[in-house]
Protein backbone atom coordinates (compact mmCIF):
# COMPACT_ATOMS: atom_id res chain seq x y z
CA UNK A 1 0.00 0.00 0.00
CA UNK A 2 3.00 2.32 0.25
CA UNK A 3 2.87 2.77 -3.54
CA UNK A 4 -0.75 3.90 -3.18
CA UNK A 5 0.27 6.49 -0.59
CA UNK A 6 3.12 7.83 -2.70
CA UNK A 7 1.05 8.12 -5.89
CA UNK A 8 -1.83 9.66 -3.91
CA UNK A 9 0.34 12.35 -2.32
CA UNK A 10 2.10 13.10 -5.61
CA UNK A 11 -1.29 13.52 -7.29
CA UNK A 12 -2.42 15.70 -4.41
CA UNK A 13 0.63 17.95 -4.68
CA UNK A 14 0.14 18.16 -8.46
CA UNK A 15 -3.52 19.14 -8.02
CA UNK A 16 -2.69 21.74 -5.39
CA UNK A 17 0.03 23.19 -7.62
CA UNK A 18 -2.42 23.34 -10.53
CA UNK A 19 -5.08 24.95 -8.34
CA UNK A 20 -2.64 27.61 -7.20
CA UNK A 21 -0.89 28.36 -10.49
CA UNK A 22 -3.27 27.93 -13.45
CA UNK A 23 -4.33 31.22 -14.99
CA UNK A 24 -7.81 30.00 -15.90
CA UNK A 25 -10.29 30.42 -13.04
CA UNK A 26 -12.40 27.37 -13.83
CA UNK A 27 -9.34 25.18 -14.27
CA UNK A 28 -7.98 26.35 -10.94
CA UNK A 29 -11.27 25.62 -9.15
CA UNK A 30 -11.68 22.24 -10.85
CA UNK A 31 -8.15 21.28 -9.76
CA UNK A 32 -9.00 22.42 -6.24
CA UNK A 33 -12.11 20.22 -6.21
CA UNK A 34 -10.08 17.21 -7.39
CA UNK A 35 -7.51 18.00 -4.69
CA UNK A 36 -10.39 17.83 -2.18
CA UNK A 37 -11.22 14.30 -3.41
CA UNK A 38 -7.62 13.21 -2.99
CA UNK A 39 -7.45 14.81 0.47
CA UNK A 40 -10.45 12.76 1.60
CA UNK A 41 -8.65 9.65 0.32
CA UNK A 42 -5.56 10.70 2.31
CA UNK A 43 -7.60 11.00 5.50
CA UNK A 44 -8.94 7.50 4.85
CA UNK A 45 -5.39 6.21 4.50
CA UNK A 46 -4.44 7.98 7.74
CA UNK A 47 -7.20 6.01 9.52
CA UNK A 48 -9.36 9.09 10.10
CA UNK A 49 -12.73 8.24 8.51
CA UNK A 50 -14.55 10.91 10.55
CA UNK A 51 -12.37 13.63 9.05
CA UNK A 52 -12.70 12.02 5.60
CA UNK A 53 -16.50 12.19 5.83
CA UNK A 54 -16.42 15.89 6.69
CA UNK A 55 -13.87 16.64 3.99
CA UNK A 56 -15.89 14.69 1.42
CA UNK A 57 -19.09 16.54 2.24
CA UNK A 58 -17.55 20.01 2.42
CA UNK A 59 -15.03 19.55 -0.39
CA UNK A 60 -17.54 18.04 -2.80
CA UNK A 61 -20.58 20.03 -1.79
CA UNK A 62 -19.80 23.47 -0.45
CA UNK A 63 -16.29 24.74 -1.22
CA UNK A 64 -16.38 24.23 -4.99
CA UNK A 65 -19.75 25.97 -5.27
CA UNK A 66 -18.53 28.85 -3.10
CA UNK A 67 -15.42 29.43 -5.21
CA UNK A 68 -17.39 29.16 -8.46
CA UNK A 69 -19.85 31.78 -7.21
CA UNK A 70 -17.11 34.21 -6.26
CA UNK A 71 -15.11 33.57 -9.43
CA UNK A 72 -18.18 34.46 -11.46
CA UNK A 73 -18.54 37.73 -9.57
CA UNK A 74 -14.92 38.79 -9.32
CA UNK A 75 -14.04 38.01 -12.92
CA UNK A 76 -10.84 36.69 -14.51
CA UNK A 77 -7.45 36.80 -12.87
CA UNK A 78 -5.80 40.15 -13.45
CA UNK A 79 -2.53 41.62 -12.31
CA UNK A 80 0.84 39.96 -12.21
CA UNK A 81 2.68 38.49 -9.27
CA UNK A 82 3.86 40.57 -6.35
CA UNK A 83 7.37 41.81 -7.05
CA UNK A 84 9.58 40.26 -9.70
CA UNK A 85 11.53 37.07 -10.16
CA UNK A 86 13.86 37.79 -7.25
CA UNK A 87 10.93 38.37 -4.89
CA UNK A 88 9.39 35.08 -6.02
CA UNK A 89 12.64 33.22 -5.42
CA UNK A 90 13.01 34.80 -1.99
CA UNK A 91 9.44 33.83 -1.11
CA UNK A 92 10.04 30.29 -2.36
CA UNK A 93 13.16 30.02 -0.20
CA UNK A 94 11.31 31.33 2.84
CA UNK A 95 8.33 29.05 2.32
CA UNK A 96 10.59 26.07 1.68
CA UNK A 97 12.54 26.79 4.85
CA UNK A 98 9.36 27.08 6.90
CA UNK A 99 7.93 23.83 5.53
CA UNK A 100 11.23 22.05 6.14
CA UNK A 101 11.14 23.31 9.72
CA UNK A 102 7.58 22.04 10.05
CA UNK A 103 8.61 18.63 8.73
CA UNK A 104 11.61 18.51 11.06
CA UNK A 105 9.49 19.50 14.07
CA UNK A 106 6.73 16.96 13.52
CA UNK A 107 8.30 13.99 11.74
CA UNK A 108 10.47 13.10 14.71
CA UNK A 109 7.62 13.08 17.20
CA UNK A 110 6.37 9.55 16.69
CA UNK A 111 6.94 8.53 20.28
CA UNK A 112 4.34 7.37 22.78
CA UNK A 113 1.57 9.96 23.12
CA UNK A 114 -0.67 10.31 26.18
CA UNK A 115 -4.02 10.79 24.46
CA UNK A 116 -5.09 7.42 23.00
CA UNK A 117 -4.82 5.51 26.32
CA UNK A 118 -6.57 8.37 28.13
CA UNK A 119 -9.41 8.43 25.60
CA UNK A 120 -9.71 4.65 25.66
CA UNK A 121 -9.79 4.59 29.44
CA UNK A 122 -12.56 7.19 29.66
CA UNK A 123 -14.59 6.09 26.64
CA UNK A 124 -16.93 4.10 28.86
CA UNK A 125 -17.85 7.19 30.86
CA UNK A 126 -18.37 9.44 27.82
CA UNK A 127 -21.63 7.77 26.82
CA UNK A 128 -20.60 7.10 23.22
CA UNK A 129 -18.27 4.54 21.69
CA UNK A 130 -16.91 6.56 18.76
CA UNK A 131 -13.73 8.08 20.26
CA UNK A 132 -13.81 11.13 17.96
CA UNK A 133 -17.37 11.99 18.97
CA UNK A 134 -16.39 11.47 22.61
CA UNK A 135 -13.53 13.96 22.23
CA UNK A 136 -15.66 16.47 20.31
CA UNK A 137 -18.74 16.50 22.50
CA UNK A 138 -17.56 15.37 25.90
CA UNK A 139 -13.85 15.63 26.67
CA UNK A 140 -13.22 18.77 24.63
CA UNK A 141 -16.79 20.05 24.23
CA UNK A 142 -15.55 23.53 25.11
CA UNK A 143 -13.56 23.62 21.82
CA UNK A 144 -16.61 22.53 19.88
CA UNK A 145 -18.72 25.23 21.51
CA UNK A 146 -16.20 27.85 20.40
CA UNK A 147 -16.20 26.36 16.92
CA UNK A 148 -19.95 26.82 16.68
CA UNK A 149 -19.36 30.39 17.81
CA UNK A 150 -16.91 30.85 14.91
CA UNK A 151 -19.59 29.59 12.51
CA UNK A 152 -22.08 32.07 13.96
CA UNK A 153 -19.56 34.93 13.65
CA UNK A 154 -18.85 34.03 10.02
CA UNK A 155 -22.58 33.96 9.34
CA UNK A 156 -23.01 37.36 10.97
CA UNK A 157 -20.12 38.75 8.92
CA UNK A 158 -21.63 37.48 5.67
CA UNK A 159 -25.02 38.91 6.64
CA UNK A 160 -23.44 42.30 7.34
CA UNK A 161 -21.45 42.28 4.10
CA UNK A 162 -24.63 41.40 2.24
CA UNK A 163 -23.35 39.81 -0.97
CA UNK A 164 -25.68 39.79 -3.94
CA UNK A 165 -28.11 36.88 -3.74
CA UNK A 166 -27.44 33.82 -5.89
CA UNK A 167 -29.71 33.74 -8.92
CA UNK A 168 -29.19 30.45 -10.76
CA UNK A 169 -30.02 30.06 -14.45
CA UNK A 170 -33.13 28.15 -15.42
CA UNK A 171 -31.94 24.60 -16.07
CA UNK A 172 -34.97 23.07 -17.71
CA UNK A 173 -37.14 20.22 -16.58
CA UNK A 174 -34.55 17.46 -16.48
CA UNK A 175 -33.14 18.61 -13.17
CA UNK A 176 -36.44 17.78 -11.50
CA UNK A 177 -35.99 13.98 -11.46
CA UNK A 178 -32.47 14.59 -10.19
CA UNK A 179 -33.73 16.79 -7.37
CA UNK A 180 -36.51 14.34 -6.52
CA UNK A 181 -34.17 11.37 -6.15
CA UNK A 182 -30.73 12.68 -5.18
CA UNK A 183 -31.71 15.31 -2.63
CA UNK A 184 -33.96 13.02 -0.53
CA UNK A 185 -31.21 10.40 -0.62
CA UNK A 186 -28.71 13.01 0.57
CA UNK A 187 -31.00 13.85 3.46
CA UNK A 188 -31.26 10.15 4.24
CA UNK A 189 -27.47 9.85 4.24
CA UNK A 190 -27.24 12.85 6.58
CA UNK A 191 -29.67 11.26 9.03
CA UNK A 192 -27.75 8.00 8.87
CA UNK A 193 -24.46 9.77 9.61
CA UNK A 194 -25.98 11.68 12.53
CA UNK A 195 -27.49 8.56 14.05
CA UNK A 196 -24.42 6.37 13.76
CA UNK A 197 -22.07 9.13 14.97
CA UNK A 198 -22.30 7.79 18.52
CA UNK A 199 -20.88 4.40 17.64
CA UNK A 200 -19.17 4.68 14.24
CA UNK A 201 -17.62 7.40 12.06
CA UNK A 202 -20.15 10.18 11.58
CA UNK A 203 -21.67 12.94 13.64
CA UNK A 204 -23.10 16.43 13.60
CA UNK A 205 -20.53 18.10 11.33
CA UNK A 206 -20.58 15.42 8.70
CA UNK A 207 -24.37 15.21 8.71
CA UNK A 208 -24.74 18.99 8.64
CA UNK A 209 -22.36 19.32 5.71
CA UNK A 210 -24.17 16.63 3.71
CA UNK A 211 -27.50 18.30 4.46
CA UNK A 212 -26.08 21.64 3.34
CA UNK A 213 -24.85 20.05 0.11
CA UNK A 214 -28.34 18.75 -0.59
CA UNK A 215 -29.84 22.16 0.08
CA UNK A 216 -27.29 23.80 -2.23
CA UNK A 217 -28.27 21.34 -4.96
CA UNK A 218 -31.90 22.41 -4.53
CA UNK A 219 -31.01 26.11 -4.63
CA UNK A 220 -28.81 25.65 -7.72
CA UNK A 221 -31.51 23.64 -9.47
CA UNK A 222 -33.74 26.66 -9.05
CA UNK A 223 -36.32 24.91 -6.89
CA UNK A 224 -34.83 25.70 -3.53
CA UNK A 225 -36.72 27.58 -0.90
CA UNK A 226 -36.44 31.27 -1.56
CA UNK A 227 -38.25 34.24 -0.17
CA UNK A 228 -37.51 36.53 2.67
CA UNK A 229 -39.34 34.64 5.36
CA UNK A 230 -37.61 31.33 4.70
CA UNK A 231 -34.21 33.00 4.60
CA UNK A 232 -34.90 34.70 7.92
CA UNK A 233 -36.00 31.36 9.36
CA UNK A 234 -32.78 29.75 8.17
CA UNK A 235 -30.83 32.59 9.75
CA UNK A 236 -32.53 32.00 13.07
CA UNK A 237 -31.93 28.26 12.74
CA UNK A 238 -28.26 28.91 12.00
CA UNK A 239 -27.84 31.02 15.12
CA UNK A 240 -30.00 28.67 17.23
CA UNK A 241 -27.25 26.02 17.30
CA UNK A 242 -25.01 28.26 19.37
CA UNK A 243 -27.91 29.16 21.68
CA UNK A 244 -28.81 25.50 22.22
CA UNK A 245 -25.20 24.59 22.91
CA UNK A 246 -24.74 27.42 25.40
CA UNK A 247 -28.08 26.58 27.01
CA UNK A 248 -27.06 22.93 27.34
CA UNK A 249 -23.73 23.96 28.84
CA UNK A 250 -25.44 26.15 31.43
CA UNK A 251 -28.08 23.51 32.19
CA UNK A 252 -25.37 20.89 32.65
CA UNK A 253 -23.53 23.32 34.93
CA UNK A 254 -26.68 23.72 37.00
CA UNK A 255 -27.23 19.96 37.22
CA UNK A 256 -23.72 18.72 37.87
CA UNK A 257 -21.73 21.79 38.89
CA UNK A 258 -19.28 21.32 36.01
CA UNK A 259 -19.35 23.33 32.80
CA UNK A 260 -20.51 20.96 30.03
CA UNK A 261 -20.29 18.02 32.46
CA UNK A 262 -23.29 15.93 31.55
CA UNK A 263 -25.28 14.10 34.28
CA UNK A 264 -23.97 10.59 34.82
CA UNK A 265 -25.91 7.92 32.95
CA UNK A 266 -27.57 10.38 30.57
CA UNK A 267 -24.46 11.39 28.58
CA UNK A 268 -25.60 9.73 25.40
CA UNK A 269 -29.01 11.42 25.41
CA UNK A 270 -27.40 14.84 25.96
CA UNK A 271 -24.83 14.28 23.22
CA UNK A 272 -27.42 13.07 20.71
CA UNK A 273 -29.73 15.98 21.48
CA UNK A 274 -26.95 18.55 21.09
CA UNK A 275 -25.70 16.89 17.90
CA UNK A 276 -29.16 16.82 16.34
CA UNK A 277 -29.68 20.54 16.86
CA UNK A 278 -26.12 21.27 15.72
CA UNK A 279 -26.73 19.34 12.50
CA UNK A 280 -29.68 21.52 11.51
CA UNK A 281 -27.86 24.66 12.57
CA UNK A 282 -24.66 23.81 10.67
CA UNK A 283 -26.64 22.93 7.55
CA UNK A 284 -28.58 26.21 7.66
CA UNK A 285 -25.37 28.18 8.29
CA UNK A 286 -23.42 26.60 5.45
CA UNK A 287 -26.34 27.08 3.07
CA UNK A 288 -26.72 30.76 4.02
CA UNK A 289 -22.96 31.29 3.69
CA UNK A 290 -23.40 30.30 0.05
CA UNK A 291 -26.67 31.95 -0.88
CA UNK A 292 -26.20 35.12 1.15
CA UNK A 293 -28.89 36.75 3.25
CA UNK A 294 -31.90 38.71 2.12
CA UNK A 295 -31.09 41.43 -0.39
CA UNK A 296 -30.15 44.66 1.29
CA UNK A 297 -32.95 47.25 1.21
CA UNK A 298 -30.88 50.08 -0.28
CA UNK A 299 -29.71 48.08 -3.28
Amino acid sequence: MIAFDIVLTLGLLACAAMALTLRDRTASIAAFVVAGLLIALSWVRLAAPDVALAEAAIGAGVTGALFLRSARRIGPITGGPVGGMSASIAAALGAGGLSAALFWAFAGTSGPVPYPPLVAANLEASGVTNPVTAVLLNFRAWDTLLEIAVLAVALALVVMLGPAPVVPRALGELVLPFARIVVPLAILVAGHLLWQGATAPGGAFQAGAVLAGGMLALVLAGIGPAGERIVRGALLLGLAGLAVFVGAALAAEGLTGRFLGYPAGAEKAWIIAIEASLTLSIAATLCLLFTGPVRRPHQ
Binding site: G172, L174, P177, F178, I181, V182, L185, V189
Partner: peptide, 17 residues
Protein backbone atom coordinates in the same frame (compact mmCIF):
# COMPACT_ATOMS: atom_id res chain seq x y z
CA UNK B 1 -26.23 0.15 -4.47
CA UNK B 2 -27.05 3.69 -3.37
CA UNK B 3 -23.61 4.86 -4.54
CA UNK B 4 -24.18 3.47 -8.01
CA UNK B 5 -27.68 4.93 -8.29
CA UNK B 6 -26.56 8.36 -7.09
CA UNK B 7 -23.53 8.53 -9.37
CA UNK B 8 -25.55 7.32 -12.37
CA UNK B 9 -28.23 9.97 -11.87
CA UNK B 10 -25.70 12.72 -11.11
CA UNK B 11 -23.57 11.86 -14.14
CA UNK B 12 -26.55 11.76 -16.46
CA UNK B 13 -27.93 15.04 -15.15
CA UNK B 14 -24.62 16.89 -15.30
CA UNK B 15 -23.93 15.49 -18.77
CA UNK B 16 -27.31 16.70 -19.98
CA UNK B 17 -26.93 20.13 -18.39
Amino acid sequence: LLCVVLVAISGATIGHL
